[in-house]
Simulated assay, not measured.
Amino acid sequence: MSLKHTYTLIAPFYDAMLARATRAARQRSLAALPTDPGRVLLAGVGTGLDLPHLPAQHHYIGLDLTHAMLRRALSRVGPVDFAPVQGDAQRLPFADGAFDHAVLHLILAVVPHPAACFAEIARIVKPGGSVLVFDKFLRRGQPALLRRLANPLVRRVATRLDVVFEDLLPAAPQLALEHDQPALAGGWFRMIRLRRY
């Protein structure tokens, strides 16, 4: 089953699974967006769970692979300048340096090729821009036997459980790590901020 098909099927249930559990972490992550107005890509915007927490001064483009997710996101658009775009976060349909900032909430552990997604983000963010990441990652050398055993099945349905964030960094050498802190589930979920040089 393709990722597009899977997320079309789970779109009606997505919020029930994630909204409450991730709300506070999303708010903390998005608070790091700069105050100066700019263009911000929400890569993998999903059902729009980030939208109520966005500062109003920016222009946002919300990209998602499925129409079903984008349709749900549109119902959450409040007083922000927001445009939906259907597309693949691993092959972004935007020019180099098209955005001042990018937000990757719960997308790097979902896409089949997270390094390709990460490299694309580095390509479309302007030098000096920021990248905000909130997702679940293993640490290098972490055994996490249950997660690794479940990964072959779970990754076919919805998400990967084996992504090591540090392994993604070589794909985007122009992104420098500025901040990394545990967010949820004993540090399995992390909030990360990077700067594009």
Rank of each mutant, 00 (worst) to 15 (best):
R72Q: 13
I61E: 05
G97F: 07
D50Y: 01
L54D: 13
P93C: 04
F99Y: 12
H59R: 15
V40L: 05
C117F: 02
A116M: 11
P114C: 02
A89T: 12
L92D: 03
G97V: 07
L106A: 11
F118H: 14
A102P: 03
A68E: 15
H101M: 01
K126W: 00
L42W: 01
D81G: 04
G62Y: 09
C117P: 02
C117G: 12
G48H: 06
P79I: 00
G97A: 14
A83I: 08
I61Q: 04
V125I: 15
E120S: 06
H105R: 04
Q86V: 10
V125F: 08
I121D: 00
L106S: 12
S75W: 00
G38F: 07
D96P: 02
G44H: 11
A43T: 06
V103R: 05
I121V: 15
P52C: 04
G97K: 06
G62E: 03
A102K: 09
G97Y: 04
A109I: 00
D100S: 13
P93Y: 08
Q90L: 01
G87A: 11
D96R: 13
V40C: 09
R71I: 00
T66K: 11
I124E: 03
V40H: 07
R123E: 02
P84F: 06
F94I: 11
A119S: 10
T47Q: 09
R71H: 13
R123T: 04
L42T: 00
A115M: 00
G97Q: 09
Y60I: 08
R71V: 13
V110F: 04
G38Q: 05
S75L: 11
P79R: 15
R123A: 07
E120R: 10
A68G: 05
F99D: 11
A73K: 07
G78D: 13
G87C: 02
V103D: 04
L92T: 03
A109T: 14
A68S: 13
M69R: 08
H113Q: 14
L49D: 08
H58K: 13
S75V: 08
A98S: 15
G78V: 01
M69T: 10
D100Y: 06
R91I: 01
H67C: 03
P84L: 07
H67L: 08
D64S: 13
P79V: 00
D88C: 03
A89V: 15
L108R: 12
P55L: 04
A116V: 11
E120N: 09
H67E: 15
A98W: 03
V45G: 10
G97C: 09
A109E: 04
L108I: 08
